[in-house]
């Protein structure tokens, strides 16, 4: 029984890893990361600054905003 649990656990982990590496888009990965971290979903960049307008982190726009420097 334990033999089967460990084996299928390894197979499931491998399937998740392969799916993550090969099949999920960058956007989907960001969304999952956000959900796992309990963060809000990424919003579009602020038009004027091209930066994150605030409220989330983890996407391309979330480079440190000028006002933080």
């Amino acid at each position: 029984m334990l033999d089967a649990i460990v084996t299928f656990g390894l197979v499931a982990a491998a399937a998740v890893y392969v799916a993550w590496r090969l099949f999920l888009s960058r956007k989907a990965k960001q969304r999952i990361r956000g959900l796992l971290n309990g963060q809000a979903e990424c919003c579009p960049a602020d038009e004027a600054s091209g930066q994150c307008p605030g409220g989330c982190s983890g996407c391309d726009h979330a480079a440190p905003a000028p006002r933080q420097r």
């Binding site: 197979v11 491998a14 890893y17 590496r21 090969l22």
Partner: peptide, 13 residues
């Protein structure tokens, strides 16, 4: 150790 290992496990399955 990562992608190939995972794919080998799936091929075995």
């Amino acid at each position: 150790g990562t992608l190939i290992l995972s794919m080998m496990i799936l091929i075995w399955f």
